[in-house]
Amino acid sequence: MPPLAHLGRRVVARIIDGLIIGIPVGLIMALIWGTYYPMGDGSDARSSVFTLVYVLAYFVYEGLMLTRYGQTLGKKAMKIRVAMLETGEPPVGGAGWARAATYTLPEIVPCCGFVFWLVNVLWCTWDRPYRQCLHDKVAKTVVVSTTP
């Protein structure tokens, strides 16, 4: 098994992936609505629709990329990948989709979805020995470096 990925690389990879999905979704929604203000004041339907579209797009992107390549474009740029804990192989099939679902879909739940997401992504800061987030634990995966 390659060495575990540095947490900083994981964060930057997520930021890159967020931009890869967020910018096109934002532009498409701006074309549909005629303006770009996706979050509104948090009480209007536009913010809910934007969140739903973004989360579903990110889920499909993450699931497809992990099950086909073992890494997203952000992870590829940061030279990290997702590996099955037991074998080191990419998370093909259900494991990749379970990991993507646990990371993205809780965001749809108002209020507590964000809290779960926050706990999920922070989990790797205290988890030992594998530095797994909750979405890694669900799928039995780890994030490893692609370079020695």
Rank of each mutant, 00 (worst) to 15 (best):
V144F: 14
Y69M: 04
E89S: 03
L31S: 06
A101L: 09
S145R: 15
L7K: 08
T104C: 14
A83R: 02
V143T: 13
D17C: 01
I28E: 15
G63Y: 08
L73T: 03
L31C: 04
G42W: 06
I80D: 08
S43C: 02
V55M: 09
T125M: 10
A77H: 04
T51P: 00
D136P: 01
V53M: 06
G8L: 15
P129T: 15
F59A: 05
R99P: 00
L7H: 08
W33C: 06
Y61A: 02
F116P: 00
T104A: 14
T72V: 04
I16S: 03
Y54E: 09
I23D: 13
V25Q: 15
A45R: 10
I20A: 14
Y130E: 11
Q71W: 08
Y37Q: 13
L7V: 12
P129V: 13
T125C: 08
A139H: 03
V49D: 03
Y61M: 07
G40C: 11
Y36A: 14
V109Q: 06
S43R: 12
L27Y: 13
K140Q: 11
S43M: 11
K76M: 08
P38N: 07
T51Q: 10
V142F: 14
V92P: 02
V109C: 05
P110H: 11
T102F: 07
H135G: 01
Y69C: 01
A13T: 03
A45K: 12
C124L: 13
A83P: 02
P90K: 07
G34I: 05
D127H: 09
G63R: 05
R81D: 01
V121W: 12
K75R: 05
G63S: 08
V115G: 00
G70F: 06
M39S: 04
Y58T: 12
G70I: 05
Y54R: 10
V60R: 06
M29C: 13
L105E: 10
V25N: 15
D17P: 00
I28P: 12
A45G: 03
E86S: 10
I15T: 06
R14T: 03
A101G: 04
P110R: 11
V82E: 09
D44C: 05
A95T: 06
L66K: 05
A77M: 11
A100M: 00
L85F: 06
N120W: 11
N120G: 03
C133S: 07
L85P: 02
V138E: 04
P106N: 04
E107A: 07
V25K: 15
P38T: 07
P3M: 14
K79P: 01
R68N: 09
P38C: 12
S48N: 08
V92R: 15
H6A: 15
P2H: 14
L85Y: 05
V53R: 04
P38G: 09
S47Y: 08
G70S: 01
T67E: 12
I32T: 10
W123Q: 02
P110A: 08
I20R: 11
A5W: 15
P106S: 02
I15H: 07
W33H: 08
D41P: 09
V55F: 05
K76H: 11
I80C: 03
G94L: 15
T35D: 13
L122E: 09
E62G: 00
Q132K: 05
V138N: 04
V109W: 09
E62Y: 13
T102M: 11
E89R: 07
